[in-house]
Design a protein around this nucleic acid. Sequence first.
DNA 1: GGCTCATACTGCGTATTTGCAGCATGGCTT
DNA 2: AAGCCATGCTGCAAATACGCAGTATGAGCC
Lengths: 298, 298
Amino acid sequence: MDWGDLRFVLEVARSGSALAASRTLGVNQTTVIRRIGQIECDLAQRLFDRQRSGYRPTEAGQRVVESAERIEAEVLALARRIEAEQRTLKGVVRVTASESLANQLLTPAAARFQERHSGIAIQIVSEDRRLDIARGEADIAVRAGSRPEGAGIVARRMPDANWTLYCSRAYAERFGHPRRREEIARHTIIGMEGHMASLPPPLWLEAAAPGVIPRLRSNSLTNMVANLRAGLGIGMLPVFIGDDEPELMRCIPRVPELDSELWLVVREDAKDAAHVRAAVEFLAEHIRAERPRLTGEP
Amino acid sequence: MDWGDLRFVLEVARSGSALAASRTLGVNQTTVIRRIGQIECDLAQRLFDRQRSGYRPTEAGQRVVESAERIEAEVLALARRIEAEQRTLKGVVRVTASESLANQLLTPAAARFQERHSGIAIQIVSEDRRLDIARGEADIAVRAGSRPEGAGIVARRMPDANWTLYCSRAYAERFGHPRRREEIARHTIIGMEGHMASLPPPLWLEAAAPGVIPRLRSNSLTNMVANLRAGLGIGMLPVFIGDDEPELMRCIPRVPELDSELWLVVREDAKDAAHVRAAVEFLAEHIRAERPRLTGEP
DNA sequence: GGCTCATACTGCGTATTTGCAGCATGGCTT
DNA sequence: AAGCCATGCTGCAAATACGCAGTATGAGCC
């Protein structure tokens, strides 16, 4: 039995058809069918029901898929570990954060860091999914929300990022804007979607207008900014983003409960490497220096 | 990166050379070298130090080997599960026990079981290592010792198997034989080795003759019987084995502390299948009927 | 110290695998 | 209802991997 065939089983189960699987695997569709046939022969066990609409895993096939998933996780973890090690050896530091945090905090910091440490290369990566630090997808991360848990990482608390309610100046002129929590329910609310919807500030906003279902939802802060600038309603933003937009204005005074924790996360394997250490210290210093912009206080 | 190459890495690390690995893998030695070269190229990472004496894993290679070991365990578990399921579907029951238990308990029971259930095939497997029931290497096991632990199995207590001290009649005529615990130290003791050495009866014997190092040790009960019959000394045996040997005789009266627990273990996945259930019930009944032979009491 | 054995590496012919193009069929949309 | 798209399957040629035989070199043994 060839271990490599498990990868074909996994991909066919995921795609639902041999043809679709062949594309992500980068091989011909006939090859996929042949490999599936091969492993079924090796195991003397039918793993897929052949249908005109594609390949559907049998009960036994489903169990094979589950094993293949665990194997894939192991292989990916291995590849990440090796890549991370090579990165370390080459003196490269990889930093990840959400798009807005990367733009507002990482990019300026990286530029200044380069002036001082020209020998250390910095890669800034902001992807939709949270990269797995412990597995070596990145060395450093800046994360909003509660303290990151998990083995293989070290987390350091940064200044909180305060959120508040924003609308465009045009919106305020036309409709007025809420000045207190009680007035929020009379306005058009732009909600949040996805993993950010569970952060305290968006929850606070929805609680302030009970029963009101937002007609519009953003799944990223960039999109929220665009919606607010278009005058589509009122919505929550971190002050370090909202205050940067001249077309936007704060609606309500600072609410301390709307502070969101900010954490600097370092991969434990990498934290003792000299160049990672240098980057972490610099970043921590830089973010602390940005405290006024983050908290919205002097 | 081809998952199958990990198997080559694993085997080369285990064998210490590409040539030796090629034999166990059933391929040519050049193929092994080429596949190792391939995965090293894919990972852009040297995994083995080439030496005249063979391939020795580098630090990175060692980590790859550890991942490959986990993958191998997953693959083996998968293969076992599938095989166990096919066995169930074909109505085959696989029973395992140590050699002596298999001969004394399983074989006679299987013969009588066949008379009643000719449609159910019974495989009796006795291997050196304990087969992994939970992973489907067998459906039923008879185990001596403390209650078997672990997920995926159900254990049922059987009558205890009593052990006592034996010697050959020839030995007794020539040297006399101990009649009480205190007289044991004056005789030649045949000890036990390996996993059986930790069973209570052998430990009791060694404790009875403190400081005496047995000149001879057996690693199986079959071998112990042979040694005793040759008159090489005195040694412990379960009474269901010792009493069956006309050339051997008990030295001391029954000692209740020398009871060894006996457990009937069933794989949880299989225990509800009709034919497995039938075999378990029959075996339990049979072993209970053998209680006099096991305990040495009427 | 010389011998044998095991090992890694190279060149070449073969065998296996893979890709490609074409065909048939069923579901989905218009 | 009819066309379109995606899918699975088959025959043939190319690409690729494989095995074999031979060479060189170091380790272990007598």
